[in-house]
Each structure stands twice: as C-alpha cells, then as structure tokens.
Design a protein around this nucleic acid. Sequence first.
DNA 1: CTCAAAATGTTGCAAATGCAACAACCATTT
DNA 2: AAATGGTTGTTGCATTTGCAACATTTTGAG
Lengths: 216, 216
Amino acid sequence: MDFSKIDLFEGIKGSEVNCMMSCFGAVFRTFRAGATVYDYPESGDEVGVMLKGGATMIRTDENGEVSVMEIFAEGDIFGEVLAFSNAAGDSVKVIAESDCEVMFIKYSQITKRCEKACEHHSRLVQNMFGLIAKKTLSLSQRIEILSKRSTRDKLMCYFRILARTCGDEFELPMSVTRLAAYVSADRSAMTRELSRMQADGLIEINKKKIRLKKVC
Amino acid sequence: MDFSKIDLFEGIKGSEVNCMMSCFGAVFRTFRAGATVYDYPESGDEVGVMLKGGATMIRTDENGEVSVMEIFAEGDIFGEVLAFSNAAGDSVKVIAESDCEVMFIKYSQITKRCEKACEHHSRLVQNMFGLIAKKTLSLSQRIEILSKRSTRDKLMCYFRILARTCGDEFELPMSVTRLAAYVSADRSAMTRELSRMQADGLIEINKKKIRLKKVC
DNA sequence: CTCAAAATGTTGCAAATGCAACAACCATTT
DNA sequence: AAATGGTTGTTGCATTTGCAACATTTTGAG
C-alpha cells in the first residue's frame, strides 16, 4: 500500500506509517461502486480515509428527500465526529461513486497520545488538522452555494468554483441527479433552468461537459 | 483575565496560559455592539477567540445580498484559515452583536511547535482540534437547514436544533432580519411564513420568543 | 443480446417565494 | 422634543420553483 499520496500521512515515512497502523487498529476495505461505505448510526467513532476512488455522503430525511452532504476524493477523510450533526436522526450514508478503497481508524486513537508515544503521532495530528480545515472549507463552499436564492445563482456559483480549478471548460464530478441534490433543487426544475441558462448564453452544456461562456 | 471557561485553554493552568501568550503574540481588543471585529481581506492568518459577548460572520456579495455565515458565542474561534472559502471575493466581516472582547493570535504560531516547546502547546493543539470539529458541526447544521426546500422546513429545522439545547421554548439568538439571512430567505416572505406557521398551530411566536407546539 | 432499473429530458399547473413599496415601531442622538 | 436610522410587519404582484406525470435514453446485470 502506497501512502505517499495521502495527505494524512504527509511527512511520515512509509515504514513508520505501517508501524503506526497497529496503534490505530487500522482496517482496510474495498467497495464496489454503489456500495455503502459508511452508515452513520452504526459506524461510531471511526474515521474513514479514502485511499482510492470516490464517494458521496448522502442524507435522506424522513420524507425520503435526498441531499448530498459531501463529496470525497482520494485523500479525503470522513466520520461522524469530524463533520456533521444528525439533528433529525436522518439516515446518513457514504456511498461509493466508483470502486474504492478505504482505511478505517479509531478517532479516539488519533486524538489521544498513544502509550508508545510515537514520534510521528504529533505530525499526524497536525496533518489531520489541515484536513479538517480543508473540510470546513468545502462545507463553507457548499453554504456559499446554498445561500444563493435562485437555482440559477446556485448553479453559477458552483460552476465558478469548479472553473477556478479546472478552467472554463470542465466535466461535472457527479450525475445531474446528484447535482440537483447538491444544490438542493428539484431535478426537473434544475434541468429546465440549465436549458434556460444555455439559451441565455451563460453556459454551453453537453451531457456532463460544461463550458462557462461569459466572464463575470 | 479568566480563561478557565474558554475551551481553547481547557486543561491548561491560568498561569501557564499567560506564559503561552507571549509565544502567540496574543492581542486583546474590545468592541462595541455593531462594530467590525474582523475584516477578512485584511486580517490575514489571525485567529480570533471570542472571550466575551457574541458576534456574527456576515458575507455580502456583489449584489449587496447579505448572508449570515456563522454565529459566534463565548469560547468560539474564527479566522480565515479556519473556516471558509471566499470564492467570489465577497466582503466577509465579523460584526459584534453585543459588546464583546476578543483575543487574536497568529494561526501559524499555533500549528507550528514553538522553539521553547511549551509543554502545553500540544494540549492547545488538541483543544483547537476539538473546536474546529465543533465548528464543522455547526457548518454542517447550517447545511442541513439550507438544504431544506421550503422556508417553513428551514425554519422548523432550525427551531428544532435550538430546542434540542434550550427546550421547546426559547429566544432567538439573533434579530428576525438576521434570521432571514441565516436561513437565506427573503425577510418579508419569511415573516409571512412565520405567521402562517403560527396560524397552523406549529409554533407560538412573540417578538423573539418562540415556542414549539407540535412534537414531530 | 435482452431485460430491468436508473438517469435524463420535457411539460402543465399550483404553490411558494422574491421583490417592491409602505407604514409602524423602536432606540439613539442632537 | 425632534430627527434619524434601523428593525419589524403587511400586502399585491410577477416569477420561480416544486411537483407529478410521462417519454426517452443510458447503464448494468444476467
């Protein structure tokens, strides 16, 4: 297993990473696309580290309304203690978007100093620090999107965020149906709005390929 | 200054806290209600710790649209590195809701180990950890609220969250105008909806006092 | 290949919401 | 007391949005 690309272990040698695994009681699992990676009511204080592939955190409320909470790519971490409140007791799951590989460790083992006082434990804490900061950033981005009043503004806001890393032409990192859940809009209404946006010359859209046309 | 109630310093003796202040280059300031506590484009890598009073983080976009991003009470921390993306380059400020007292420290001084290697520095990092986790929780709560489709659902979601800590009868922690910004709805439309909710027997509302009536 | 399930695209209609404009109220300052 | 600025409450109207229902296309499994 190559951990060199995983941010959580940055600055920690591969050999030492393996050594740390026993402290953490790390467990490795692989999942097929569509499988449930993490089921919140059950998964206690475990932290998941996405080693390979991608997944989406999905909340389903009592009315069956679905909303996308977070999107995980390689290197991202997730877990109940890390990220969210489940106020309403809704069902919250992480679903594999593609085949993926995940490492699970106990949160409590990370935050408390282990008896052996691994030298690299504190570095790991620092890394974790940075990852959580990154996560708050993405949550905050989501809030920026959701706080727009109209579906059009929400979409434009999201597209501009994507464009900042990918340029004015990019591919949606999720299905249109998921996108609707992500911006918290009705799918059909959103599709209608996407058409209008194209008609108004704001974007060009072809399947999942999108091109921002106007600078703004 | 009494730090015993500030989560960031939990488990660190008062005398040692004072000792640490020099490492951090802590600066203390007081603000009147309505004053600007923190202005993001300018305030670099500083972390604010709310020692006394309360404040609100407000984003204003290019159209003058206002949205409340976070609400800070005693013990909460805030800062650019901690929480948010400013994608659009909008104006983001922290405004004192009441008279308040804030301590500012440099983020970089917290994350990097200081030369003196204070014994308690690592405890501070652990505490900071917990605070950020708490922050992600509140961001995630906000997302839970914003991802509801209707204004009524947003409000009920928020009220239930408040009720969990305060019981079925509580006082709004912000003005109605701010509440509208928080749930990202038009103020007048929200007021209208609040009346309807009362008419429908869901809540009783009197100024800022709210009572949840139906269990659900 | 074939079938079933899921995703996508489209439309009409009713309801919710934003918007604008206004009046009433409150607190603070002069 | 008067003036000022901010918050609150209300209403009519145009627009947006959600919702439901349906046809079409794509995907995946056997």
